[in-house]
């Protein structure tokens, strides 16, 4: 989780990724952030997030993102 928080923090240093649980629903992240995050996941974790995966359930919190990364790694 710490590594993930570091990756996310590089993209949006002004967001508390450890505490937020409605990153998409509360419009804290915009579509530009999403592209940067997906690209970072590609580079750091070697997972390919598809457009169909870009749903709030997968991106509302760092925890949800980690669960998605682990799912995609399998």
């Amino acid at each position: 989780m710490e590594e993930l928080l570091k990756v996310l923090g590089e993209i949006r240093p002004d967001v508390d990724f450890a505490g937020e649980t409605a990153l998409i629903d509360d419009q804290i992240l915009d579509s530009f952030d999403m592209i940067a995050i997906v690209s970072a996941f590609d580079e750091h974790y070697g997972v390919t997030v598809k457009p169909a995966d870009l749903v709030p359930e997968n991106f509302n919190s760092a925890e949800a993102m980690l669960a998605m990364i682990n799912r995609l790694k399998k």
């Binding site: 590089e10 993209i11 579509s31 530009f32 952030d33 999403m34 592209i35 940067a36 997906v38 690209s39 590609d42 580079e43 997030v49 598809k50 457009p51 870009l54």
Partner: peptide
């Protein structure tokens, strides 16, 4: 937007920009 920005050529371009120019340009 998402299918285009996450297409293979765009992904490659993003990663190239990140290595060359850093986070901000690879994002914007």
């Amino acid at each position: 937007f998402y299918p285009l920005a996450l297409s293979k050529p765009m992904r490659k371009w993003t990663q190239h920009l990140r290595r060359k120019f850093g986070m901000q340009w690879s994002r914007s």
